Computed example of a mutant assay.
Amino acid sequence: MFLVLLAYLAFFSIALPDSMLGVAWPTMRIDFGQPISAAGLVPPFGVAATLVATSLTGRLLARFGVGRLLAASTLLSTASLVVAATSHSFAQFLASAVLAGLSGGAIDAALNAYAARWFGPRRISLLHASYVLGAAASPLLVTATVQAGLGWRWAWAVVAGVQAVLCGVFLLTRHRWTSGDRPASAGGGAGRGLAGARPLDVGLGLLAVAVQTGIESSVALWAFTALTQSAGVSVVVAGTIASGYWVAIFVGRVVLGWVAERTGPWLVMGGGVVGLLGAAGLGLLGGPVAAPIAIGLFGLAAAPVYPLLTLTTAERTSEAAADTVVGFQAAASSLGAAVFPLLVGIALDRSASGFALAMAGLCIGAALLQAGLQLRRRARRVAGTS
């Protein structure tokens, strides 16, 4: 149980840096002498580094193990936060974003790989719910330090301290991450590349993860704009709904993870994409009533899908390939979170109904991919019994 709680804390902590920039940038940009638009340069550096780290995680896990990789990654995360907190130029801060992407990507993929092998639906959903809490907490931390007159740098310093403590704990517990009860997905042979996995199964899973995180990130980024510009919702109400979206994701992961523990992950994933289609339909209907309900439903319906896609990786591919594929899926998640919100933003810029239309397309894509995964699962079952 100690390692489970530690994994939750680690996922909470890696979310903290991800959500601080937006709140800190108005003050930070003055220190760096940068225009407001320069903030858009930061995510590409972090995403590129994350893609490198997550893609290599399977090999790193096979060589060093979960405990050592987590200790090294949190040490790198601490270093990135210290570099950010002491940056005297924007170039220095961009360098810290690269370090943060490498460390965060490795921690994300390593913990997801561990959770896919050892956790059940409820625990892996709670793991991802803890990330939501971290994403919600860090803007409050930045606001508190700035309002207290300490400046944005102290927020990064506080999170660096948290990561340093985590690094020490991971170092002390590095040998415990390979022991314990029988994993949730029985078997062995982790870390042998893509052994036993069919390219079609791997590809479908990568696309499903990319589209899923694209949906989550697009709603998070554009819900407020869409509600105020095309749905006739007031600024105050739209802001409340945009915050409530994260609450819906958190509640959905807690509650539906518990449901998946009893019904199995596949039924809940199927129900999730049906819910996404319902949310998309409400979004197309629009208006000050249907549109806000759609945002909440997007959060609830999307909540369990990515954690459960991670959990079922070995079942969809192979036990031997699971760690490597989870790393690739984490990379696909980062790529989807970067690309699809950009495309949705372009659609919204061209038409007031662009957000609803783009989200409907993404949700239909998610449903088709989920149907493909379900069909492949049934085909494997038939082949296994023949």
Results as ranks from 00 to 15, higher is better:
Arg63Gly: 12
Phe64Ser: 13
Leu99Ala: 06
Ala49Trp: 01
Tyr114Cys: 07
Pro43His: 04
Ala106Lys: 00
Ser77Gly: 14
Gly101Asp: 01
Leu56Trp: 11
Ala97His: 02
Ala85Val: 06
Ala85Pro: 07
Leu111Gln: 00
Gly105Lys: 00
Ala62Thr: 06
Ala95Cys: 14
Thr54Met: 10
Arg63Tyr: 15
Leu51Val: 13
Gly104Pro: 02
Ser103Trp: 00
Val47Gln: 04
Ala48His: 04
Asp108Pro: 12
His88Met: 15
Ser73Gly: 10
Arg63Gln: 13
Ala97Cys: 11
Ala79His: 05
Gly101Phe: 02
Ala85Thr: 04
Asp108Lys: 06
Thr54Phe: 09
Gln92Ile: 13
Leu75Ala: 14
His88Tyr: 12
Val83Lys: 01
Pro44Ser: 06
Val98Tyr: 06
Ala53Asp: 00
Phe45Asn: 10
Ala48Phe: 11
Arg59Trp: 11
Pro44Ile: 12
Ala109Asp: 03
Val47Pro: 01
Ala97Glu: 05
Phe90Cys: 15
Phe64Ile: 12
Ile107Pro: 08
Thr57Cys: 11
Phe90Ile: 08
Thr78Met: 12
Ser87Met: 15
Ala72His: 02
Leu111Asn: 01
Gly58Asn: 05
Ala85Phe: 10
Leu70Pro: 02
Gly58Asp: 07
Leu81Met: 13
Ala49Glu: 00
Leu94Arg: 03
Leu56Tyr: 10
Gly58Phe: 07
His88Ala: 15
Leu56Asp: 08
Ala71His: 03
His88Pro: 14
Thr74Val: 14
Ala110Ile: 07
Ala106Val: 08
Ser55Cys: 14
Gly65Trp: 07
Val66Asn: 04
Ala79Trp: 08
Arg59Glu: 15
